[in-house]
Design a protein around this nucleic acid. Structure first.
Lengths: 215, 215
DNA sequence: GGATCAAATATCCTATAGGATTTCCGAAAC
DNA sequence: GTTTCGGAAATCCTATAGGATATTTGATCC
């Protein structure tokens, strides 16, 4: 095995900045870089084996997506963990979008996409369930057939994912059942039921997450 | 007048990338850089008198906001003008968010902010009306007290602004009257009326803009 | 013991140079 | 007239060096 560039380097010739962006985003989502932590351009450049320019571009994109913030002449840092007010705002926004998305998905989702919906019942671990949950909501958002809806929810769910991972919340039977109800409504092409089931799911999910915040 | 750095250069020591971002965004919104036009890093660097690095950062942020797109080894280009499908998606999204924002603004908006609401009746020109309209919707979104709502709508209204500017649509009496109805409802703190008035305004606005698209 | 101030370090920000790739333009062939 | 091919130009992408700033550490003073 003489494979030289094996460790943590990036080689693909398809845009270094994009590759760095995905990698850092993954590190933030997996809490490998915890919230409210400084992110050094130099360190990342050395660790990933690339120059500072693509790092800088990737961090600029992450900043535009709200995952890191920049202070002039002080560098980048990951956003602090959500507080109560931010959690409230996030779920208020989700309640505006996702029930509507579920309705449209029920009415117009392609059969091939519907077949991919899984409730997460078979998830073997916390991380696996988190990934399946993210994919579940992503599929429904995509099923709504509106790119703005899909993109907005993707951005939001990243923050939900981080928040949930901070507390390693358990895989509740409730969440699985709520997912199943949504899946059933979509398969039945019942827009009203899908919208109601999604609204209920988000409200319950908010209740489960809110308990983790004391301040 | 011996002011040397007067032309189109940038000097403020508060983050060059941010300054470049605002400038390029303004140029795109004013159609000084039309849709579907290539944007050269070198040219911008020479024109603004700064290095390539802040240009690159600013373009990365603009890309994350959907105003330009990048192709590997081919450079940046402004997004093409919205087609019918994108316009439909945009207004579907606005109808999900803005009526709710108007309701919350009516219920909780600060008096000092309410005093700033203007229908745009006194706008002397097309550009002035466009700016007042943007500010009108921004104030209401801010009045909803949810940063996610405010940020999402700000992003969307940029595209509305560009689309409208492409056709230099007239200042309709209708739009002013619709704005007045919203303002009246907010001053009366009537959430139901504010939500209904905003929904009606967006639906009418969609009808006025849709006529410009033939394809 | 706590606070204040100054120097040292680490980091960011900017600028410039060189290699790699796409695009554009013109000529030749069909 | 249309298409194809080749070369030149423009552009992007990456890497490195130097100046400027914030943060940290340590010593001194109260």
């Amino acid at each position: 095995m003489l494979n030289e560039t094996a460790d943590r380097t990036i080689a693909r010739p398809s845009g270094l900045a994009e590759e760095v962006y995905r990698r850092v985003r993954a590190d933030i989502m997996s809490l490998k870089i915890p919230p409210d932590t400084r992110v050094s351009v130099d360190s990342l450049a050395r660790e990933l084996g690339v120059s500072q320019t693509p790092i800088r571009e990737a961090l600029s994109m992450l900043e535009a997506n709200g995952l890191v913030s920049k202070r002039h002449f002080a560098g980048y840092a990951t956003s602090p963990r959500m507080d109560r007010a931010q959690l409230d705002e996030l779920f208020e926004f989700r309640l505006l979008i996702e029930p509507h998305a579920a309705r449209k998905a029920a009415e117009a989702m392609a059969d091939t996409d519907k077949a991919q919906l899984a409730s997460g019942e078979a998830a073997p671990s916390h991380d696996a369930f988190a990934d399946m949950d993210t994919e579940f909501h992503r599929l429904i958002a995509q099923g709504a057939g509106n790119h703005l809806i899909a993109d907005s929810l993707a951005r939001l769910h990243i923050h939900v994912h981080i928040f949930r991972s901070c507390f390693r919340s358990e895989i509740t039977e409730e969440a699985v059942h709520e997912h199943d109800a949504i899946i059933a409504a979509i398969h039945a092409r019942d827009g009203d039921k899908a919208e109601a089931a999604m609204r209920r799911h988000i409200e319950r999910s908010y209740g489960r997450l809110r308990d983790f915040i004391k301040d």
